[in-house]
Amino acid sequence: MDSIERLLIERDCTQLSVDYGRLVDFGQAAKVAELFTDDGVCELSAGRFEGIEQIRAFFEKRQGQTDVVSRHVMTNIAVEVQDADHATGLVYLTFYRVVWTGEGPAPLGPPSFVGSYADSYRRTPEGWRFESRIGSTALKS
């Protein structure tokens, strides 16, 4: 595998994290399931969801919470290419969440928590997808 192929894989896997945060934070959480393989695993503080249908059901509930304002601030995205079809990654997360039904911007407080995602990625016929995304919390307010 040459350097360009490796960079393209890293970029595609990084984009999955960007899309994940954007979809959840901007009212399209149900589409997060499309970022996972059919047999994917998503483990968060809310539970472990196995398979695309469980993942979709969880994120559909999240999408229905219209009184929640959240922002996933993801940094230090490190992707390690294993081979042409597999990669792993570690993503730092600072997560803000506020229940808000008022006018204008929600009030800013400290982050709800700081943690990380341990990801594994797999190339599918549709492109790169999360094979698993395992969240962990390092700091909590």
Rank of each mutant, 00 (worst) to 15 (best):
V69M: 01
Q28S: 15
E43T: 14
V81F: 11
P105K: 09
A84K: 13
D85S: 14
S132Q: 14
D119E: 10
L90T: 15
L139M: 12
R129K: 15
V81Q: 07
I9W: 03
V32R: 09
E5Y: 03
L8G: 09
M1A: 11
F130Y: 15
H86Q: 14
S45T: 12
E10C: 14
A30F: 07
P111R: 02
E43N: 05
L93E: 01
A29E: 12
F59Y: 15
D39N: 13
I55F: 04
R71V: 04
G27T: 11
V81L: 09
E43D: 08
R123D: 05
T88E: 10
Y96F: 15
F58T: 00
D12S: 15
M74A: 08
L139Y: 13
C42V: 01
R133Q: 09
C13F: 06
Q15M: 14
D39S: 11
K31D: 15
L8H: 08
L35T: 10
E43C: 04
A84F: 06
L44H: 03
V73M: 13
F49C: 00
A57N: 12
E126L: 14
P107S: 02
V98N: 02
R133K: 14
E5H: 10
Q54Y: 02
E53I: 11
S112T: 13
Y92W: 10
P107G: 03
S70K: 02
E5L: 09
Y92K: 07
Y117M: 00
S17P: 02
E103H: 05
L23H: 08
L44C: 08
V114W: 03
T137A: 00
G51S: 04
R22S: 09
R133W: 06
P125S: 14
L16R: 07
H72C: 03
T101Q: 10
G109V: 00
G102P: 06
F113M: 07
L90A: 11
L35F: 12
A87L: 08
G102V: 02
H72L: 06
A138L: 13
I4T: 14
Q65W: 02
P105G: 06
G64T: 08
D2R: 07
S136H: 09
L23V: 09
T66F: 04
R122F: 05
R6Y: 03
W100P: 00
G89P: 10
H86C: 06
H72F: 09
R123M: 09
V41T: 15
S116D: 11
S116L: 06
G102L: 09
D39F: 03
T88K: 13
V99D: 09
N76M: 06
L8P: 01
D38G: 13
R133N: 07
A87C: 08
R97G: 01
M1C: 04
S17M: 13
L108C: 06
T14Y: 12
R56V: 01
Q15C: 05
V32M: 11
T37R: 04
V68F: 14
V68D: 01
V91A: 02
V68N: 03
S17L: 07
K61M: 03
L93H: 00
L35R: 05
L93M: 05
F59R: 00
L44W: 04
W128D: 08
R22T: 12
M74P: 00
P125T: 12
L35E: 12
Y92M: 08
R11M: 10
G21E: 06
P105N: 11
E126S: 15
A138C: 01
A78I: 15
E10N: 07
V73W: 10
S70N: 05
S141W: 03
D19C: 11
